[in-house]
Amino acid sequence: MPECPHTWEMTNIRFGFVVFEKCHHCGRVRTFFTREDIALLGDKYREGTHFWSRVENAQSFRFDLRCRSCGMLEKFDDLMGLLYCTACRPECKVDILRRELEAQGTHVVLACGFLTENRRRPEQVAGHKIEMLASYFNQRRDVSRSRIAVLPFDLEDGLSHCMGEFLHDVGMISQEPPEIRKTPLWQ
């Protein structure tokens, strides 16, 4: 029996927030997704040796991909978000690749897993899921004009230097306009 070529569609869309917590004891940052109606900042609590405080939230969503042809379902609960690579430090490996790919009409998106207190980098999103995401975005578009390349975050040398643009809604529950970020994502 021939293998299904898979035509992906987004399903089980759930809106919520990606919350960023920082421990003011060790400086570590972790993230998680919540479906709270309003994810308030400033919430503080102690967990073991950590003193967590909510320092940022971003309206976001979770989804799964399902094949319209065969019904195969893949969950993307481990995807914190997509990071659009627009420009970075000249020595950034992703940015070097981005410049090459953009010259060919391909835009670079990084699939970013959640941050945990034990790592300085986000968790990795599985390779087969990254391929599915790329297929999904390219199946929807006229690829004669441009394509999307989805890459894992592990190409990035240091998350603390990343200048990418997260596709989240930061500050949507604030009355103040978002600040223009001129620094890396995390320091």
Binding site: M10, I13, Q59, F61, D142, L167, H168, D169, M172
Partner: peptide, 13 residues
Amino acid sequence: SDMVSDTMARARP
């Protein structure tokens, strides 16, 4: 929509 996440989830090419 005024939300990037909403657009990513539900807008069509």
